[in-house]
Design a protein around this nucleic acid. Structure first.
Lengths: 123, 123
DNA sequence: CCCGATGTTCAATAGTTCTTGAACTAATTG
DNA sequence: CAATTAGTTCAAGAACTATTGAACATCGGG
């Protein structure tokens, strides 16, 4: 379980799979949250998304996001860090990711998305 | 059956539904075909898509495209004309439709999309 | 070495989606 | 009015999706 899971190559990334992945509210929220703080850090750890659903359900959605090429997973000790594959996506589908993020931001309330600097609860 | 079917208002158009709609290969092909000849005519009639699938399956996909706000259907005698709701989509999700069309065009072969001036078979 | 934390995997379930063909409706044409 | 054309609606089936909880694996720390 400790090895890095498989990722598609850039060329293997398929538009319908990407769109389907982004069409699920939980996965869209994950991608949005990653994009919102890309300028702070490109990575978040899986646990940072625990507010969105149960852990096993999140693992399912992480796998989907990884398999369709939207995210990369890095194993570090007992944690896994995920990040958007922005370079690959921008090369493959120019403007798509940004258009989705921007559109999601416009509907953040309706989509129950966490805006930047929110949702980081002090312990 | 003859009345114009219901369409969502611009504000009712939801991002996840739009992305989900576009993630189906047949629906993506429909949208792509409409976009490819938007500069010739904004409308096509349902029968122009018969190459993509059977009629009842197309009716199912047309309904989905209409219900999510991607297309508008106009009834004219025994025909129905469909067109992209470009103004509404661009207002709601700026750049999204164009990014999807451009991305689809790049993968036209892989996605089995009909390029412009193709698929118009003389009788 | 055992504990707790982090995440994954598995099995089961409820619900959804796509596809097909047959029956239907509605307008047009002879 | 009968026949044709265009497209929808309905019912049924196969396949897939999301969600849940329980069991499991792995790492790091006392």
């Amino acid at each position: 379980m400790s090895r890095t899971p498989p990722h598609p190559t850039r060329e293997q990334i398929e538009l319908p799979m990407v769109l389907d992945c982004l069409s699920d509210p939980i996965r869209l929220a994950i991608v949005y949250q990653l994009a919102q703080q890309e300028h702070v850090s490109s990575e978040l750890c899986c646990g940072d998304f625990n507010a969105l659903s149960g852990k096993s359900n999140l693992a399912y959605h992480f796998a989907k996001l990884r398999e369709c090429g939207l995210m990369q997973t890095r194993v570090a000790g007992t944690n896994r860090f995920v990040r958007l594959r922005r370079e690959d996506l921008d090369a493959r589908f120019p403007g798509l990711l940004d258009a989705v993020i921007t559109s999601a931001a416009k509907d953040a309330d309706r989509l129950h998305l966490v805006s930047e600097c929110e949702g980081v609860k002090a312990d």
